[in-house]
């Protein structure tokens, strides 16, 4: 074998090569992507935020020139907090999110459990059940608006039921306050059960089969195995599903716009829709800014709790694995 010393190592110089060499030093290189991403966050998220904080203290409506705005202390915050519409919308958001998430979790879990046990046709079920996730939310809103119309297919399908009960078969899904609320919850459940299904399914497929086999060999029944072995192992995935879906459900906006515009009356106004209307219909920018800040504080608290829950679950797992 010949020695490498005989081979000339081609020297490379010039400004680009030198820049490249400087950038590929570890202490520099490791921070390049960090600086890029943080820079983007600062430019697109942080600066607008600071701006909002400023505006939330102004007395200003967008239909007047910005120069006429003046600082007004906490008046916008007082206005938001004493606004019944805001509180009602917030309450409604939690009401929608609560029902929707519970349905999504229960149905998603059952479906994942059933699909996990299916041998033939598994792939087809998974493919079909995941479709709603990929459908654009606005299209979902549109689809349901079509299905919900008084002369629509849903009422046609419900005809046997409504004729037995003796009620008018033309249920006014979108113009009756209560029906409209459930119309939105149903559309949300239709779309997002696919996500909880996905999370639970990945949980089920990650279950270690030898543990379940061990339990079965030791004489545990199906139900006992599920309750004492599978469910505790799935707990972290359940936490994820609850956290992720709850966070998303509180943002509910698209189907409201597409289905009801918050109506009839204000019966389907979620907090996102309410704010949007305040700002874009009534030009109450400063009011909207203050409400945004309050919402941010509220949601951040919830998000931090959620992340804390997830991280606690993770550290618990790591500890268990280590021991």
């Amino acid at each position: 074998m010949t020695a490498l010393s005989g081979v000339e190592i081609r020297a490379r110089n010039g400004p680009f090569a030198r820049l490249g060499a400087w950038l590929s030093q570890e202490r520099v290189f490791r921070w390049i992507p960090f600086v890029l991403v943080e820079g983007t966050f600062i430019l697109v998220i942080i600066i607008p935020f600071l701006l909002t904080i400023y505006i939330s203290f102004l007395r200003w409506r967008a239909n007047r020139p910005f120069e006429q705005a003046y600082l007004s202390g906490f008046r916008n915050y007082e206005a938001v907090l004493s606004d019944t519409g805001f509180w009602a919308a917030l309450g409604r958001t939690f009401y929608f999110a609560g029902f929707a998430v519970v349905f999504e979790l229960v149905i998603g879990f059952l479906l994942a459990m059933l699909v996990h046990r299916v041998v033939r046709g598994r792939r087809i079920y998974i493919t079909v059940f995941l479709i709603p996730m990929m459908v654009v939310p606005v299209v979902v809103g549109y689809n349901f608006s079509m299905i919900y119309i008084d002369h629509g297919p849903l009422n046609q399908l419900l005809l046997p039921l409504t004729s037995i009960l003796g009620i008018d078969p033309r249920i006014r899904w979108l113009s009756d306050p209560l029906a409209a609320q459930w119309a939105i919850i149903l559309a949300d459940v239709w779309q997002w059960t696919s996500l909880t299904f996905l999370i639970f399914l990945s949980g089920f497929s990650a279950l270690p089969p030898q543990l379940i086999n061990a339990a079965r060999v030791m004489g545990a029944s199906r139900w006992q195995t599920f309750w004492w072995v599978e469910l505790p192992l799935l707990k972290p995935v359940i936490v994820i599903a609850v956290v992720v879906r709850s966070m998303e459900a509180l943002k509910l906006f698209d189907p409201v716009v597409l289905l009801t515009f918050g109506g009839p009356g204000t019966s389907t106004q979620t907090v996102a829709y309410y704010l949007w209307e305040q700002v874009w219909q009534f030009n109450k920018f400063a009011f909207g800014a203050a409400a945004s800040m309050l919402l941010l504080i509220l949601f951040s608290t919830l998000i931090f709790t959620g992340i804390w829950l997830m991280m606690r679950e993770r550290t618990r797992l790591d500890r268990e694995r280590a021991s």
């Binding site: 074998m1 010949t2 490498l4 081979v7 190592i9 081609r10």
Partner: peptide, 12 residues
């Protein structure tokens, strides 16, 4: 990585 010429690389 050391820019050894291709013929030499093949041989070695």
């Amino acid at each position: 990585v050391k820019h050894v010429d291709p013929g030499e690389i093949r041989r070695r």
